[in-house]
Amino acid sequence: MSWWKPRSHEDVIFYPGRQETEEYVYTPGIHGKQFAEALIKGKILGMKCGDKFIVPPTTFCPDFSEGELVEVDTEWTVQYYTEVYRDLYGNQLEEPVVMILVQPLGWEGGLIHYLKPGIKPEIGLRVRPVFKPEEERRGTIDDILYWEPY
C-alpha cells in the first residue's frame, strides 16, 4: 500500500449537505384510516385474523387474508419498557421519559407509547390510555397522551 499516504483530517476537504426533502406526508392506509377515526372517538381498533387478534390493524393478516376490524375490549399491560434520558439530538432531558410496549391481554402485537410521567415502570403493569381532549385529536398516535396504571 505504498501509494496510500495517510493524511490528517484537516488535509481532506469536507462539504456540508442537508436532506433535500422539506416534508414527508404519510397516508394512513385502509385500516389505518379507520384506526385514526376510532382514535378521535377515544377508541383503539385491532383486527381479527381467524382466531387471532392483532393490534394495530394492518389491513392484511399474516396468511394474506383480509383482517376484520374489531375494537380492543380487553385490558392492556406493559410488556417491555425503557427509560430515555436524551432527545433525538443527544441533549439531556430534564426528566427521563419512559417508553412502553403495551399489549392487550391475549392479543398479538401492541403499541409503543409513553408511560405517565412519574410512574415507576414494571412489566405486567395494568394500564389504560389517557386521551387528549377530543377537539385536539387528529387521529394520530399522539392523540393518546400517555398510559396510566389503574
Partner: peptide
Amino acid sequence: YSLPGLVRYKPTAKYSFSAGIAQT
C-alpha cells in the same frame, strides 16, 4: 391533507461529505 391520521414529518438530517484524497 384532510385525512384523519395523516402524519407530516420534516426531516432535519445534516451531512458532512468527505471529498476524499483524489477529489481534494
